[in-house]
Computed example of a mutant assay.
Amino acid sequence: MSESDKINSSKAPEPVGLYPHARKVGNLLFLSGVGPRERGTKKIPGVELDEQGNILSYDIATQCHSVFKNVRYILEEAGSSWAQLVDVTVFLTNMKDDFATYNRIYAEYFKDNLPCRTTVEINCLPTPIAIELKCIATIG
């Protein structure tokens, strides 16, 4: 893999570790996990934290809209598009309370493009967020 295969968006939030936003392999684009954080700030849309950084409350709808926006940023800057998504893995930290809202908003964004989808509940994510997406798209 060459350095040119790595994509880092100028609009999506900075990675929280040593990884690019995406990698091109042939005509496929593999996105690293994308959350709802905002670039250049510690602010997380829809999340209220206490002084120690613990979650006091969160709004899953706001986080869904933000994470979908971040995925779109990465896709477009990499030369792909929302319509070229072929596989989406969604990680939720609270399936019981959040799935219905997430599923409704997901349907709004994906009504014209039906990528494969897997949704799983996990214990936590590396930042205080409730949703993260892992995506594969085509390029060209």
Rank of each mutant, 00 (worst) to 15 (best):
M1K: 06
E3K: 04
K6G: 03
K6E: 09
I7E: 04
S10M: 12
K11V: 02
A12T: 01
P15M: 02
V16H: 02
Y19D: 06
P20F: 01
H21R: 07
R23K: 08
K24G: 04
K24P: 03
V25L: 06
G26L: 08
G26F: 00
G26M: 06
N27T: 10
F30D: 04
G33K: 05
G33L: 08
V34A: 00
G35W: 02
G35V: 00
E38N: 11
R39L: 08
R39E: 05
R39I: 10
K43V: 14
I44V: 14
P45R: 06
E48D: 10
E48K: 15
E48N: 12
E51I: 13
Q52M: 12
N54F: 11
N54V: 02
I55W: 01
I55H: 07
I55F: 07
L56D: 04
L56H: 04
Y58T: 03
Y58E: 01
A61R: 12
A61S: 14
H65F: 14
S66N: 00
V67Y: 00
N70L: 08
R72P: 00
R72C: 09
Y73W: 11
I74V: 14
L75Y: 04
L75K: 00
E76V: 13
E76Y: 07
E77H: 02
A78P: 08
A78I: 12
G79M: 12
G79R: 09
S80Y: 01
S81I: 04
S81H: 01
S81C: 08
W82R: 09
W82Q: 08
A83D: 15
Q84L: 14
T89M: 10
T89S: 12
T89L: 11
T93M: 07
M95E: 10
M95F: 15
K96Y: 08
K96H: 13
D98K: 05
T101M: 05
Y102R: 05
Y102S: 03
N103R: 11
I105V: 15
Y106W: 14
A107I: 03
E108I: 12
Y109V: 09
F110I: 07
K111A: 15
D112S: 14
N113W: 01
L114S: 15
P115I: 08
P115E: 11
C116P: 00
R117N: 07
R117Q: 13
R117I: 15
T118S: 13
T118F: 02
T119W: 01
T119Q: 04
T119A: 10
V120I: 15
I122N: 06
I122C: 15
N123E: 13
N123W: 03
L125I: 10
P126K: 03
T127F: 09
T127H: 05
P128E: 09
I129E: 15
I129V: 15
A130S: 15
I131T: 09
E132H: 02
L133H: 05
L133A: 00
C135T: 09
C135Y: 00
C135K: 03
T138W: 04
G140W: 04
